[in-house]
Design a protein around this nucleic acid. Structure first.
Lengths: 141, 141
DNA sequence: GACTTTTACTTGAGAAAGTCATGTAAGCTC
DNA sequence: GAGCTTACATGACTTTCTCAAGTAAAAGTC
């Protein structure tokens, strides 16, 4: 159990860093023709992972499911995503990226990675950083 | 210059961690009678530091100055903050926490610190973490 | 196997938060 | 001190989000 002061400072740093990262993202949104909420959704739509039900996406983004519905419509209108019926459960719909969606998502991640303050850390440092972050993220809930 | 894949993963972790932290904060908002934007403002109002002009607060929160004006009114209505004229520049107003404001801010920080996933890291680990985060945050802009 | 309950999503209304344009007042420049 | 810039306030408007209600499918109950 760390002293509360120490954690407070670490917290502050993480929050600041996150603010910087979202700042970088926001600056790149226009050139990708995205809004911030759409970019956030795109961010968590990993094309390599199994497609997620809308409900799970809402949990991940800490928002109401109806919000995801609306964002999904926007993604579809832009030709970046598509809602597909779940093969086993007729109530469920999963959100999948189109080819173009994957492309734009890659551009988004690359853009942020290139301009993020984390890029000043070398490979070795990042690995050590990742280990610590993973430990923190491994805590339940 | 790190490989882009590595940075992408680190980014993902930082973003996830930040989401967890804001999630913890959101869960605590009701018991503190705060809204999320007010809590964000409260967060950056360090009573130990020199009082900041509203304009600087807008820069820190990456939002329009008019937004800070409105939030300042809310803070004042709640008796947590007070806008003071700048002693040297008549155009400028600084936002200062009241005694109660400092109290509530402390409660907010303590609450988040106690429930944040970072608390699983020991003192030594946090120090190493802080060093790396500081290096990243030291990059200009 | 029909009946109720639960779960997943959609829809539309409404609230909240943020931006933009405009106005006012104070400093700065010459 | 005339003109320009900067800092904040105000009001109209947009965007985003939530909440309540509705539909449809699955699961549980008898």
């Amino acid at each position: 159990m760390p002293s509360s002061d120490i954690t407070a400072h670490t917290l502050d740093q993480v929050v600041q860093l996150a603010a910087r990262i979202t700042g970088v993202m926001r600056d790149g949104l226009e050139e990708l023709d995205l809004t911030e909420p759409l970019a956030n959704l795109l961010w968590i739509l990993d094309p390599a992972a199994a497609p997620l039900p809308l409900r799970k996406l809402a949990l991940r983004l800490h928002c109401d499911p109806s919000n995801i519905s609306q964002l999904s419509v926007q993604l579809e209108d832009k030709g970046l995503g598509q809602r597909r019926p779940h093969p086993e459960d007729g109530r469920v719909r999963t959100l999948v990226l189109t080819e173009r969606g994957v492309e734009v998502r890659t551009q988004l991640l690359d853009l942020v990675a290139a301009r993020s303050p984390l890029s000043v850390l070398g490979d070795a440092e990042q690995h050590r950083l990742q280990a610590m972050l993973a430990k923190a993220l491994a805590t339940p809930r």
